[in-house]
């Protein structure tokens, strides 16, 4: 079977080796924002020239932004680019000491607060209240299903070592007939 790769770093490592792969990974990491801008423009189905027209900037500027290193992109540039494709720029600050599990907990509280905000917004409007209740129930169901799947995957599975020898019942005609009779009796119950 032909080997498939999920990332260019992994792909490079396999063909050119570790050193080149590390160089590529470093270069890619320096351009995470410009890569995202490029992907968002393509998803929006706009050419560089079309986006430039919408954002009232030159096409050269769009091209430069899509090739720039993160440290050379200004917030103003990001706002202009995002507005042209109907996106909102969101900036977040996170304590570097936060672990992944802390972040999951934080997300849970955020989700709870957002649902609460939604409920408060709908208060007094029966139609909206009904919609919010329906949405909350749907969200609850989907989240539980997703979490249940995570829980199943997270379970530590202990492989039972196969026994060196297995003694099964001898297979003869009587055994099969008896099995048949027992099953028939079960079905008639």
């Amino acid at each position: 079977m032909v080997k498939q790769y999920k990332s260019v770093t992994e792909f490079t490592k396999n063909i050119l080796g570790d050193t080149e792969a590390k160089e590529i990974a470093d270069a890619i990491n320096k351009k995470r924002i410009s890569k995202q801008l490029f992907a968002m423009r393509c998803k929006a189905g706009l050419t560089q020239a079309e986006l430039a027209r919408k954002a009232s900037i030159s096409q050269g500027k769009v091209s430069k932004l899509e090739m720039a290193e993160d440290k050379n992109i200004s917030i103003g540039d990001l706002v202009t680019f995002c507005s042209a494709i109907g996106m909102q720029l969101e900036i977040g600050f996170t304590d570097q000491r936060l672990t992944r599990t802390d972040k999951i907990k934080l997300l849970y509280f955020k989700l709870r607060n957002m649902l609460e905000e939604l409920r408060m917004m709908a208060k007094g409007d029966p139609e909206m209240e009904e919609g919010v209740a329906k949405f909350t129930a749907e969200a609850f169901f989907n989240i539980i299903i997703g979490l249940f799947d995570c829980l199943e995957k997270a379970k530590v599975k202990k492989e039972k070592a196969p026994e060196p020898m297995l003694v099964s019942e001898p297979i003869d005609k009587d055994n099969i007939e008896n099995l048949g009779k027992t099953q028939q009796a079960e079905l008639c119950k």
């Binding site: 990332s7 260019v8 770093t9 792909f11 490079t12 590529i24 270069a27 890619i28 351009k31 890569k35 995202q36 490029f38 992907a39 968002m40 393509c42 998803k43 189905g45």
Partner: peptide, 17 residues
């Protein structure tokens, strides 16, 4: 070129046609 390949792959994974 490999960096550009990474960009192209990202666009596909974001759902761009």
């Amino acid at each position: 070129m490999l960096e550009n390949l990474d960009k192209y792959l990202k666009a596909l994974n974001e759902g761009a046609n």
